[in-house]
Design a protein around this nucleic acid. Structure first.
Length: 808
RNA sequence: GGAGCUGUGGUGUAGAUGGUUAACAUAUCGGCCUGUCAAGCCGAAGAUCGCGGGUUCGAGUCCCGUCAGCUCCGCCA
């Protein structure tokens, strides 16, 4: 969908016409379409290929003149176009036109586990604008050379263990077979040089120039020639045409200043009474958020009138002509940054909220990040493939959103919780490297970082080791932080087994920006006379402590509140001790002799003025409770520096006490670690999964696993999860069947895009970076969704609603 | 399902222990004003305090219920 101001409709087709010509698709443009006109659409149009009728339509749309206005917005004329991508693909002659994309450099690895090195080199080259491909399939050097020859690479860079030790690379010219050695830096520099000489195509993400807003066909007739924020001293004395919203009006009687705002920023317009009464009267009638189109000359401001707080503060535009495109009601809140309004109001008028520069910036950031992700994965030969939104309900994890089927009354589609099964099936299909930026749906209670629909960067690969996948993901994170903050991220990221994360930090997503680790006190606790501690240990539990530095400020009541909090989290209680000059002040001190207290203090590195907190319970609860308290007492001044961490070796199962069975910790398709396979029968809870989470500063931003790729293991897992053979066949038969047709070893990861963007933009809530988010009860305050539907709709679906108590 | 917080002109807030004209700022509307940029000056209009019930002679204020939003637990990778 494109949407912009323009004079005529067919202008919008310039690009698609160019594309279709390039693809050799014959087409007709019909700008006077009668079919499909609706209330708002003034004219409709379509591009059709070859034959006639709706079947041949490739692209269509209309000019809708009052749609936005009728929805309560300003008058914004616009043109909407939708392209049928599948139709266009069908219309293409595949064999002739499939574009051959081949980056100029292939990085071959000689030896094992060098993918990380290869990716690092690829990243260095990318900075020089050179695209490269690396082998992530662990093929032999010979196979890699064959492959790169077949793909038509002109140069192959070979790295092996010896080379890495000497910090050199071997470069082979594929045309004449010449081979030479050079240092890594020399290679990078050479490309930097070549790049300048030969002008190799820039492969990193680029953003179109802000000044370039005129479409090719529009020169001369354009409504606008510049973005407001793009004007600068360079444009002085130029005639410009601008459009935008009236942000502020300062009326001095004979002189009116208007701050005109568009997507790019703000510029001051000047209306002078001496320059004509009619125009001036028009200017006097302007109010906040009116939509105007103006023409005028860019002037340099005199020194005294320069506004240093505005990027365009050195210039202004003296207006000679103006058209008021639409008036506006007084907005319910200020359209400016840093407002302090009820979130209800912002969500109810989200389209006005999004007009605020900081929100526009968030949307731009999101666009930028998504584009970087796409380009990065594309470089590594990933295919972006769409998977269905209407699928079948499968009993994994969260509650499904259901969609009733009209044609099969009584049956339902489910919205995908993630494309998990489809991406695995794509691996069976031989796609090898798949990704998708995809909406997922989960009908669970919401949080600041949880929405009922959210977006994932979904990745799945075949024949790739965990380390390669990690390197790929780390490269992506490094790219995002580099491009968006200009920050170099240290790679590879730290890896920590789940067990260690829980033991040391009491969390499966620890924030490593501060210490305050939990201290194991099992041995020391054993020596005390405290029954609570001893009982916990005897039943196989754990005793741990947390030191709160400078905690003496806490009152007895604060500690009671903490105890309550600990109980809520599942602990039986919380023990504490103030560290004072002469030792512990604590209700449990009577159970410890002096030397034991001193030893515990020493073990916990306690100092006078600290408070020590103790929990004794089963291992998991002890860790979780103290972990929550650790977060609670996290220092206020922790840095924003990114601390990435892989948490690995998650347990495959956890025990579901309510249902009295095992549940998958990740999902039922996660492969167990090979060496733990025998434990599946003897001690399922001890089985570690080949699952991993990516954690950043205490926030889980992604997770994935190596999948099970053989039918027998998958069946075994299903049966451990309490699914009978009949049930698993009924619910996952298609997967089991697919696994039996030569499923490759595969695995992947899904990154939470909304959380990632929120971290990049420094927001606490993902609602800030989602254009149209829902509230904590899942409703949309703007559209009123969810809403009742008509009797007729329900009848068609053969759905009868239960009467609520009040109605009866 | 549970806990906590919030709800007063368009907006943001003030309204100790219940006391009768609900205050302030800003926005809005009208007038004046040729260099402002949080423009200024003069004037006007605008809220029965989320909703329902109760206690009381009297409720924005106390109590109960309810709705909406936010945060957290449960739930959810």
């Amino acid at each position: 969908m494109i949407d912009h101001l323009c004079e005529g409709c067919d202008v919008s087709f310039t690009r698609v016409k160019e594309l279709l010509k390039k693809l050799d698709i014959p087409f007709n443009l019909n700008t006077h379409l009668v079919r499909g006109l609706d209330y708002y659409t003034r004219t409709a149009f379509e591009i059709s290929a070859g034959g006639a009728g709706a079947q041949a339509s490739l692209c269509g749309g209309g000019r809708y003149d009052h749609l936005v206005e009728h929805l309560g917005g300003p008058y914004v004329p616009g043109v909407g176009v939708a392209y049928g991508v599948e139709r266009i693909l069908l219309a293409m002659d595949w064999s002739k036109n499939l574009p051959k994309i081949s980056p100029p450099v292939y990085i071959a690895t000689a030896g094992k586990d060098l993918e990380g090195e290869a990716l690092a080199l690829a990243a260095d080259l990318r900075e020089q604008g050179v695209a490269s491909e690396t082998d992530l399939l662990q093929r032999s050097l010979k196979a890699q050379m064959k492959y790169s020859g077949r793909q038509g690479y002109s140069q192959v860079v070979i790295i092996g263990e010896d080379e890495i030790k000497q910090d050199i690379v071997t470069v082979r010219n594929m045309e004449n077979g010449e081979q030479s050695e050079m240092s890594r830096q020399a290679l990078v520099d050479r490309f930097a040089c070549d790049n300048q000489k030969t002008g190799l195509p820039e492969k990193t993400a680029t953003i179109p120039s802000r000044a370039e807003v005129v479409l090719p066909d529009q020169k001369g007739s354009a409504i606008k020639t510049h973005y407001c924020g793009a004007l600068s001293k360079e444009h002085v004395n130029q005639e410009v045409k601008l459009t935008g919203w009236v942000s502020k009006r300062r009326d001095h009687g004979g002189l009116i200043f208007i701050d005109l705002r568009d997507r790019s920023g703000i510029i001051q317009l000047v209306f002078n009474k001496q320059q004509g009464c009619e125009l001036f009267n028009q200017a006097e009638s302007l109010r906040s958020e009116y939509v105007i189109a103006v023409e005028g000359e860019v002037h340099l401001r005199s020194k005294e009138t320069i506004n240093p707080s505005l990027p365009t503060g050195e210039i202004e535009v003296c207006i000679s002509r103006m058209e008021i495109l639409n008036t506006s009601q007084t907005p319910p809140f200020y359209i400016e940054d840093g407002i302090n309004v009820d979130e209800n109001l912002r969500l109810r008028y989200r389209y006005l909220d999004l007009r605020r520069p900081e929100m526009l910036k968030r949307m731009q950031l999101r666009h930028r990040a998504v584009k970087l992700v796409r380009d990065y994965l594309d470089q590594y030969d990933f295919l972006e493939i769409e998977t269905p939104m209407l699928t079948r309900s499968t009993p994994e994890g969260a509650r499904d959103f259901l969609v009733p089927s009209r044609m099969h009354s009584g049956s339902f589609y489910a919205m995908p919780q993630s494309p998990q099964l489809f991406k695995q099936l794509l691996m069976v299909s031989g796609m090898e490297r798949y990704f998708q930026i995809v909406r997922c749906f989960r009908d669970e209670d919401l949080r600041a970082d949880r929405q009922p629909e959210f977006t994932q960067v979904d990745i799945e690969t075949s024949f790739m080791t965990k380390e390669s996948l990690f390197a790929l993901t780390e490269g992506l994170m490094a790219l995002l932080w580099k491009e968006i903050f200009g920050v170099e991220i240290k790679k590879p990221f730290l890896q920590m087994p789940y067990r260690e994360a829980m033991d040391r930090f009491g969390s499966d997503k620890p924030d490593l920006r501060y210490g305050m680790e939990l201290i194991a006190l099992d041995g020391l606790a054993q020596k005390s006379e405290f029954k609570v501690f001893k009982a916990a240990l005897e039943s196989g539990g754990a005793v741990k402590g947390l030191r709160v530095p400078g905690g003496k400020g806490m009152s007895r009541k604060d500690l009671d509140d903490l105890t309550l909090q600990a109980r809520q989290l599942g602990a039986k209680g919380l023990a504490w001790a103030y560290i004072e000059e002469d030792g512990w002040r604590s209700p449990i001190s009577k159970f410890f002799d002096q030397s034991l207290m001193e030893e515990i203090s020493r073990r916990m590195e306690a100092e006078e003025g600290d408070v020590l907190l103790f929990v004794a319970d089963d291992w998991e609860i002890t860790c979780q409770v103290l972990g929550a308290l650790r977060t609670h007492f996290a220092p206020a001044d922790i840095s924003k520096e990114p601390h990435f961490l892989w948490v690995i070796d998650f347990p495959l199962f956890h025990y579901n006490k309510e249902e009295k069975r095992y549940d998958s910790d990740h999902h039922p398709f996660t492969a167990p670690r090979a060496e733990d396979m025998p434990l599946l029968d003897s001690d399922p809870l001890a089985v570690r999964a080949q699952a991993y989470d990516l954690v950043l500063n205490g926030v889980e931003i992604g997770g994935g696993s190596k999948r099970i790729h053989d039918t027998s293991t998958q069946s075994k897992i299903f049966s451990l999860l309490g699914l009978s053979e009949a049930e698993s066949k009924e619910k996952f038969g298609f997967l089991l069947e697919a696994l039996s047709y030569g499923a490759p070893p595969h695995g992947g990861i899904a990154l939470g895009l909304d959380r990632l963007i929120a971290l990049l933009s420094g927001d606490d809530s993902i609602r800030q970076v989602i254009p149209f988010p829902k509230t904590a009860t899942g409703s949309c305050l703007m559209t009123g969704a969810p809403a009742a539907v008509s009797e007729k709709q329900l009848e068609e679906l053969k759905i009868e609603l239960q009467k609520t108590v009040e109605e009866e």
